[in-house]
Design a protein around this nucleic acid. Structure first.
Length: 320
DNA sequence: CGTGTTTGACCGGCGC
DNA sequence: GCGCCGGTCAAACACG
């Protein structure tokens, strides 16, 4: 959210707060009728008190709007600063991962369950680590990232709807997790190298861990295709795999529409690095969607914006 | 009949 | 060299 995107002075909206009295005011170029003027003067004296009340209310509302606007600006600033801090942190973690990338397989296997860090301490681990012991050279090229999707614990399907078409080509029960791991290939386009692994979290069966590998060699699915996704299973916005190999993680809460409108709290601190514009864009869309679904926020935003219009209208009126 | 899923077999990397 | 394990293949199967 950027204040620069807010409606500017160029908007030609008739927001004159005094427009309701305009019907009683004769047009400027109209030749005044004496009877009309006499009646008008009577009405003016009657409306003076009402107008004063309206102006007072208007001033009060404008003040509230101004406060809300300031609060909104402060909120945006806080968000930007938090995001910047997180990016710095992620950069440091990425450097550390490159140093310790030669860790042994056994340790990684034992650490897998700990990667699902709901306390926010270990959740930034990279799925690259899972395979770094196998293909260290390709590892530098492979773009992988992990997505956590909250679904119902009773939901046994390992389906994460992200808009792309996936063909399941295997399923395995892994050593460190009682729930099977499903392997998918992208069938949205022929010869698309992207693969996806989906497995329930060992700690919390209501969490699906989807690991994406590779980059799509085709354009992302259209919005209409996204909207056609079935409601069953866990659904998330399409997330391109073209992110850095340090594998940022994204957690989406798909079953609690009221709790942050679908985004877990750690979403904010896990907003993705600047090298991942796709993820960042998705996050922005998710956040915008979450905010716009909150009636309180939309009401406050509308009030703040209308407050600007009113202030502008008053300024223009009084300057004339 | 075409397409997608299931599932057991197979392969390759790694540790011992 | 052997066994374990994760990943992949492909035949069988299900479904529309």
């Amino acid at each position: 959210m950027d204040s620069s995107t807010w409606p500017g002075p160029s908007l030609d909206l008739n927001l004159n707060p005094f427009h309701h009295t305009s019907t009683k005011v004769p047009p400027k170029k109209e030749v005044f009728d004496k009877n009309y003027v006499a009646g008008f003067e009577e009405k003016v004296s009657f409306n003076k008190h009402e107008t004063a009340i309206l102006v007072e209310q208007l001033n009060r509302i404008s003040g509230e709007n101004k406060k809300l606007t300031e609060m909104l600006s402060a909120l945006c600033e806080n968000y930007n600063s938090l995001q910047k801090q997180y990016m710095d942190l992620m950069n440091k973690n990425a450097e550390n991962e490159l140093v310790s990338i030669s860790k042994k397989r056994k340790a990684e296997g034992e650490d897998f369950s700990n990667m699902i860090g709901f306390n926010g301490h270990t959740e930034c681990s990279s799925s690259d680590e899972d395979q770094s012991y196998k293909k260290p050279k390709e590892n530098l090229k492979a773009k992988t990232f992990r997505v956590y999707v909250r679904t119902s614990a009773s939901n046994s399907t390992l389906i994460v709807k992200d808009g792309y078409q996936w063909r399941k080509y295997g399923q395995k029960v892994t050593r460190d997790n009682p729930s099977p791991r499903a392997y998918f290939k992208c069938s949205f386009a022929p010869a698309c190298p992207v693969k996806k692994k989906v497995q329930k979290s060992a700690e919390d069966p209501s969490i699906l861990v989807a690991t994406y590998e590779g980059e799509h060699n085709h354009p992302p699915p259209s919005k209409s295709e996204l909207s056609l996704c079935p409601s069953h299973g866990a659904t998330l916005a399409s997330i391109p795999a073209s992110v850095q190999s340090t594998a940022p993680t994204v957690t989406l809460d798909m079953i609690q529409p009221s709790a942050g409108a679908g985004i877990l709290l750690d979403e904010a601190k896990k907003s993705v690095q600047a090298e991942a514009p796709g993820i960042q864009q998705i996050l922005v869309q998710q956040m915008a969607s979450s905010l716009t679904r909150d009636p309180n926020f939309t009401a406050a935003l509308a009030a703040a914006i209308s407050g600007r219009f009113v202030d502008q209208a008053r300024t223009e009126k009084w300057s004339n």
